[in-house]
Amino acid sequence: MEISVGHTPDSDDAFMFYGMFTGKVPSPDFKVNHVIEDIEKLNRKATDPQLDVTAVSVHACAYIPGYTILRSGGSFGIGYGPIVTARKQMSIDEIKKCKIAIPGKMTSAFLLLQLMIGKFDYVEMNFSDIPEAVKSGKVDAGLVIHETQLSYEQEGNVKILDVGEWWDKTTNGLPVPLGINVMKTDLGMETIHKFDKYLQASIEYGLENMDDALEYAMQYSRGKPRDLIEKFVKMYVNKVTVNMGDAGEESIRKVFEMAKEKGLVPDFELSIATK
């Protein structure tokens, strides 16, 4: 079966798909055509289902009824996640009055920050442009994701909020639900399960062949040094990535329960692949 698979130009996604896309982990069931797009573009593409399988933000699941969440391939923070940076420290009241750059309205980081501080003034931009926009004063603060969570000090900014830490404390240690992979529901649960296992095998292969998988992932390093990319990959390709388990599923359900209570997402039915 020929299927289209979308992932982001990010080192953690590349690491997960290394085994699959290089043929190191073959499949008798699938021939994969991969499409690489920024996460917010994939989120928007998924609202009008174009790809059979795609990476999306957890937040996007409120708007893509035609997809089922896979149990493998998720990006979950374990006590860490998105942060907010600025040129100087601020009080929470000052932060609420800021214009904050966000990496997209459908990103999980945006939803989590709204849950943390309430609604705020924002401007959307590509996540990689946010650090410079903060440093130059184009915006008051920036909601930072991906490897820029680790490089903000080198970029001349300071951390003023830790969204991942807030989630960890608020939920008594549930993993921070950020990104997941979804598959078209109408392909059927048998096909979904088969692909889920295939993706899981690719992730496990990467973890077992760390150096080679990291070398492959470095093509999406965006000029960051290998040690920083290795740290980032090891943060977001973890045990919950291999299989979200009960904790990962609970964290996804929890974020939408909280978001529905605050009117931040529409009422919808969540579809997660069975165990």
Rank of each mutant, 00 (worst) to 15 (best):
D211R: 07
D168S: 12
D186V: 14
I180D: 07
P177D: 15
G142P: 04
D212S: 11
Q154A: 10
F120E: 09
G179S: 14
F127P: 02
K119V: 09
K194W: 03
S202I: 11
Q149R: 15
N172H: 09
F127K: 06
D162W: 03
V123Q: 13
A201H: 14
K184C: 07
L112V: 02
A141C: 04
I203M: 01
D162P: 00
A213N: 10
A109S: 09
A201T: 13
S128W: 04
L174T: 09
K197R: 06
G188P: 14
H193D: 12
E124D: 09
K197W: 00
D121T: 10
S128T: 05
D186F: 15
K138I: 09
W167N: 04
T185K: 14
G137I: 10
E124I: 08
H193N: 07
E190P: 06
L112I: 00
N172K: 11
L150W: 09
W167L: 03
T171P: 14
G173L: 02
T107F: 01
V134H: 08
E204I: 08
Q200D: 14
E153R: 12
Y205K: 09
E204C: 06
S136H: 01
N172R: 07
I203N: 01
L143F: 13
D211V: 03
D186L: 15
E215K: 12
G206M: 01
D121R: 11
E190G: 03
F127W: 15
V134Y: 00
M116P: 04
T148R: 09
I145S: 03
G156R: 12
E208V: 05
G206I: 11
N157A: 04
W167K: 08
M183T: 00
T171C: 12
F127V: 12
V144A: 09
L214W: 12
V158Y: 12
N157S: 11
D140L: 04
S202E: 07
E124Q: 15
F127A: 14
M125K: 15
S202R: 10
T148H: 14
G156D: 15
S128H: 00
V176R: 01
K169H: 11
V176E: 05
V134D: 04
E153Y: 03
D129L: 04
G137C: 11
Y216A: 01
E165W: 00
T107N: 15
W166C: 02
G173F: 07
M125C: 08
K135E: 05
E208H: 11
L113E: 06
T191D: 08
S136Q: 10
F127L: 06
L115G: 12
S136Y: 08
L214E: 15
K197D: 05
F120Y: 10
Q154F: 02
A141E: 01
I130G: 05
M210G: 00
I130R: 02
L207R: 03
T148L: 14
L174H: 02
I160W: 02
